[in-house]
């Protein structure tokens, strides 16, 4: 008792003690954190360096214009059909999902945000966004490949659409909701019908956000392999939408364990092209996003 009383009366010690256990623990934890952060950056740089190192030498005109080589062709060849195939299938998916997703988002955000169906639809979209991408492939296989009797670019597009829809829908809903209420009030106060208010005032304001969502979804879809594996599969020939169709992602997968050095190099070059494409799309969406926040 006496001792504590005495201690209380003493001047408190306010000096720094760098070797006190508390301070040491702090330093240790901070160091671990820094190391973790650095380690986490390593894969990104490693991937980028390898892509440029292994794939960079093949970046030339032929890559973008020629068809893939056979396993016995020791040099030359390109990935033109895969680039076109990827763009074509992502394009189909975008054509399906943009109107689908945006119109549904308008209902969820504006016309019936509290209705039962809106709650269920929101839940469905969130569930779909967590769907394994291969399940989208299985679904497109079941409805397109089995019914049409063959692999096709259309089936690939449908599989990608299933993956893109939730992203587009949910981001569009968010951005439409973020349009200030006073803008909607102004439109209604002028005597707009709900649709006029939506198309003339709210959608133009939400457009940048919606585009951001679309671009992100496109970027993700462009890199998807699993849904295309048994819907579009692969082809060494030029695009023929009713037949099997090549894509960058499946080309990388197919050539990744090829014994042909030529094909393997093409896999790296295709990866480089794909990553550059995806990064550009990401930058674009960020740029649009940051511009509108101002």
């Amino acid at each position: 008792m006496n001792e504590t009383k005495n201690n209380l009366l003493q001047l408190p010690n306010l000096e720094r003690h760098p070797f006190e256990p508390r301070a040491l623990k702090s330093i240790l934890l901070s160091t671990i954190t820094v190391i973790c952060a650095i380690l986490a950056c390593v894969p990104l740089f490693s991937v980028l360096v390898m892509l440029i190192y292994r794939g960079g030498s093949r970046i030339n005109l032929e890559l973008f214009t020629a068809l893939p080589p056979t396993a016995f062709q020791f040099d030359g060849g390109g990935i033109s059909n895969a680039i076109i195939g990827t763009l074509f299938m992502v394009g189909i998916a975008a054509l399906i999902t943009i109107p689908f997703g945006v119109l549904a988002a308008i209902y969820l955000a504006e016309f019936g945000p509290y209705s039962k169906i809106a709650t269920i639809a929101r839940f469905s979209a969130k569930t779909m966004s967590g769907l394994p991408s291969i399940i989208a492939g299985v679904f497109a296989y079941a409805i397109m490949v089995i019914t049409m009797g063959s692999y096709s670019a259309w089936a690939g597009g449908v599989a990608l659409a299933v993956l893109m829809l939730p992203t587009i829908l949910l981001t569009a809903e968010e951005t439409i909701k973020m349009v200030p209420k006073r803008m909607k009030e102004a439109a209604f106060g002028m005597g707009c019908t709900p649709s006029q208010s939506m198309t003339k005032v709210v959608l133009p304001m939400a457009l940048p956000g919606i585009i951001t969502g679309v671009v992100l979804a496109v970027a993700r879809a462009a890199g998807e392999t699993a849904p295309l594996l048994f819907t579009a599969i692969f082809s060494e020939y030029a695009l023929e939408p009713n037949d099997p169709t090549a894509s960058l992602a499946v080309l990388i997968y197919n050539y990744s364990n090829s014994t042909s050095e030529n094909q393997l190099e093409l896999a790296w070059a295709a990866s480089l092209v794909l990553v550059v494409l995806v990064f550009i799309l990401n930058m674009v969406s960020r740029w649009i996003g940051s511009r509108t926040r101002k």
Binding site: R182, M183, G189
Partner: peptide, 12 residues
């Protein structure tokens, strides 16, 4: 019957 609001709300 037109309306003017508390916050000025010109369209963008």
């Amino acid at each position: 019957i037109g309306m003017v609001f508390q916050q000025p709300n010109p369209f963008a």
